[in-house]
Amino acid sequence: DNLVIALHSYEPSHDGDLGFEKGEQLRILEQSGEWWKAQSLTTGQEGFIPFNFVAKAN
């Protein structure tokens, strides 16, 4: 599964970004460059996240 966990909170700064809290679990939908499309397992919302704010969940 493409599950990751947030290492830091992220406040969206552009339309289409997905905000999240530290410790939140996300599902990665697309990996492309430094911005990945993800879905929050907490809110169900989708958007782009900075890849270096998350780590693979085990």
Rank of each mutant, 00 (worst) to 15 (best):
Q39N: 01
T42C: 09
L29H: 10
H14G: 13
L41D: 03
E21H: 14
H14M: 08
S13G: 08
Q25A: 10
E11G: 06
L18E: 02
Q45S: 08
K56E: 14
N2L: 10
V4H: 12
G16Y: 09
D1P: 02
K37R: 13
E21R: 13
F53A: 14
F53Y: 15
P12Y: 05
Q25M: 14
E30I: 04
I49Y: 00
A38C: 06
I28R: 01
Q45V: 10
Y10T: 04
E30G: 09
A38Y: 03
G19D: 03
R27I: 10
L29P: 00
L26V: 02
F20V: 09
K37P: 02
L18G: 03
F53T: 09
N2R: 07
I5G: 04
H14Y: 10
I5R: 08
Q39G: 03
D15F: 11
E21V: 14
L18H: 03
K22P: 02
E34K: 14
L3E: 04
I49T: 04
Q45H: 09
T42D: 10
G16S: 10
G19S: 12
D1Y: 09
S13T: 15
F20D: 01
W35D: 06
G23C: 02
L7W: 03
S32T: 15
S9Y: 04
K22S: 07
D17C: 14
G44P: 00
F51C: 15
G44E: 09
H14P: 02
G19A: 13
T43F: 00
K37F: 09
E46L: 10
F51S: 15
L41A: 06
V54S: 02
L29K: 07
F48P: 05
G23H: 06
L41F: 05
N2K: 09
N52L: 04
I28N: 04
K37H: 06
Y10R: 08
F20N: 03
E21W: 05
L3C: 08
S32L: 06
Q39M: 10
Q25W: 10
A55E: 15
W36R: 09
L41V: 15
L41I: 13
A55N: 09
Q39A: 07
R27C: 09
G23I: 02
G47V: 02
F51N: 15
G33W: 00
A57R: 12
Y10Q: 07
G16I: 07
G33I: 05
G23Q: 01
L41H: 02
V54L: 03
E21D: 09
I28M: 03
R27S: 05
H8L: 08
W35T: 15
D15A: 13
K22D: 03
Q39T: 08
F48Q: 08
T42E: 14
P50N: 03
I28L: 12
Q25Y: 13
A55L: 06
E11F: 09
F48Y: 14
G23W: 04
H14A: 14
E34V: 12
G44Q: 09
H14V: 12
F20H: 01
A55P: 01
F53W: 12
S13Y: 10
E24Q: 06
P50L: 00
A57L: 14
Q25K: 15
K22I: 05
I49H: 02
G23T: 01
S32E: 15
E46S: 14
S40Y: 01
P50S: 02
K56N: 15
L7K: 09
I49N: 02
P50I: 01
E21G: 07
K22N: 02
L41P: 07
Q31Y: 09
L29C: 06
L26A: 00
G47C: 00
E24T: 02
I28P: 01
H8M: 09
E46M: 13
G16D: 12
A57S: 12
E30S: 11
V54Y: 02
Y10D: 05
E24I: 02
D15Y: 12
L29D: 01
S9V: 03
G19Q: 08
A6R: 03
G19L: 04
D17S: 13
L7Q: 11
D15N: 09
P50M: 00
S40R: 12
E21F: 05
A38L: 07
E24K: 02
T42I: 13
I49S: 00
Y10P: 03
A6W: 00
E11T: 15
Q39W: 02
E21Y: 06
G23D: 05
L26G: 03
G33N: 11
I49C: 03
F53G: 06
N52T: 09
G33Q: 02
K37G: 00
D17M: 14
N2G: 06
A6K: 00
Y10W: 14
G19T: 07
I49A: 04
V4P: 03
P12W: 02
F53N: 05
K56V: 11
E46F: 08
V54D: 00
F20A: 05
P50F: 01
F51G: 15
L26Q: 04
A6Q: 01
A38H: 00
G19H: 07
G16K: 07
K37N: 05
E21S: 13
G44C: 06
L18M: 08
P12A: 06
Q31D: 14
Q31F: 05
V54I: 06
E30V: 10
F53M: 11
E24D: 12
S13W: 08
L7F: 03
N2M: 12
E30F: 06
D17L: 11
E24W: 03
H14S: 13
D1M: 07
G47I: 00
L26K: 01
D1T: 07
T43W: 00
A6T: 11
E11L: 10
Q25P: 08
E21Q: 14
N52F: 04
E34N: 09
H8V: 09
I5L: 09
E46H: 06
S40W: 00
D15K: 15
P50T: 01
W35F: 11
P50R: 03
Y10I: 04
Q31M: 10
N52G: 13
D1C: 10
H8C: 11
E21K: 13
G44M: 08
V4D: 12
I28S: 04
F20E: 04
Q45K: 12
L41W: 00
L7P: 06
G44S: 08
G44A: 08
E11V: 13
L26N: 02
H14Q: 12
A38D: 00
L41G: 03
E11C: 09
L7A: 08
T43S: 12
N52W: 08
A57N: 04
A38S: 02
L29S: 06
S32W: 06
S32K: 15
L7T: 09
A57T: 14
S9M: 05
I5D: 05
F20C: 05
Q39E: 10
R27T: 09
L7R: 07
R27W: 06
I28V: 11
S13Q: 13
T42N: 15
A38I: 02
L18Y: 03
W35M: 14
A57I: 14
I5S: 06
Q39F: 05
V54T: 06
V54P: 03
W36C: 13
D1L: 05
A38M: 03
A57P: 13
S9G: 11
Q39I: 07
L18I: 10
F51D: 10
F51T: 09
A6M: 04
K56Q: 10
H8K: 15
V54A: 03
K37D: 00
G19F: 04
K56T: 12
E30K: 08
E11Y: 07
V4N: 03
S32G: 12
A38Q: 01
N52V: 03
E34L: 09
L7I: 12
N2A: 02
F20R: 00
G19C: 10
V4M: 10
G33C: 05
F48H: 10
L18N: 03
G23K: 02
T42Q: 13
A55T: 14
P12R: 03
I49V: 12
E11Q: 09
G44F: 06
E46T: 15
N52Y: 07
T42P: 03
H8R: 15
V4K: 09
T43V: 01
S32D: 12
N2C: 07
L29M: 07
S13N: 13
G47Y: 01
F20Q: 02
H14F: 10
G23F: 04
T43A: 04
L41N: 04
E21P: 01
E46V: 15
L3I: 15
